[in-house]
């Protein structure tokens, strides 16, 4: 057993965890934060994606004890609206009036999900991915060393760590592109604050 403090969606949460407990189980089974989902529990589906230290990671393969002091953001806390600390995670994107982050709004508008189970992971992954893109990070389909455009192939490759069995992929890609265009991250290095 270990005592740790994890900042979850802007709220410090103190808890005692078994050293075996993953961040995913700590969130879902100890803290009642069930936005990150358990789809495979082995890093093979992406449904458990959260931001930790601003980066998208898999909470199912992260031991909770390693997260003492970490700042963890789930889909439930993406929009500044939802956060008691008013912080704007993930690139300072503002949330719009209905309390949804632009990526979330785009997912709803594009019908980028069906059953909804992989969706919080998709949304968080998209937020993390857009930040990576804005930093100029390449992907497996990026040609050469010049900054790529956020075209279909780039989005699809960068989002391939999030499986969707309902197969909403053809709506997820335009949703991510729409959110990127609206928040000015469609081009690398544009408009993303740390």
């Amino acid at each position: 057993m270990s005592e740790i403090t994890v900042h979850v969606d802007g709220t410090p949460r103190r808890l005692t965890v078994d050293t075996r407990t993953t961040l995913l189980d700590a969130l879902r089974e100890r803290l009642g934060v069930t936005s990150p989902k358990k789809g495979c529990d082995h890093g093979q589906c992406g449904a458990c994606t959260v931001l930790s230290g601003g980066r998208r990671v898999l909470s199912c393969l992260t031991l909770a004890v390693t997260q003492d002091g970490a700042r963890v953001v789930t889909a439930e806390g993406l929009a500044a609206h939802d956060r008691p600390d008013g912080e704007r995670p993930a690139g300072g994107q503002r949330s719009d009036d209905d309390g949804l982050h632009p990526v979330q709004r785009a997912f709803v508008d594009c019908d980028a999900f069906q059953c909804g189970y992989c969706t919080p992971g998709q949304v968080v992954s998209a937020v993390g991915m857009l930040d990576e893109f804005a930093r100029g990070w390449p992907s497996a389909v990026t040609e050469g060393t010049r900054p790529p455009r956020l075209d279909r192939a780039e989005v699809a490759e960068r989002m391939s760590g999030n499986l969707c069995r309902c197969a909403a992929y053809v709506n997820i890609v335009p949703a991510v592109q729409r959110a990127a265009a609206e928040s000015g991250t469609a081009a690398p290095g544009a408009g993303v604050a740390e």
Partner: peptide
């Protein structure tokens, strides 16, 4: 749009 859309994208 889906009535359950906002709840699903937020994970609630």
């Amino acid at each position: 749009p889906r009535r359950d859309g906002a709840a699903k994208v937020r994970g609630t």
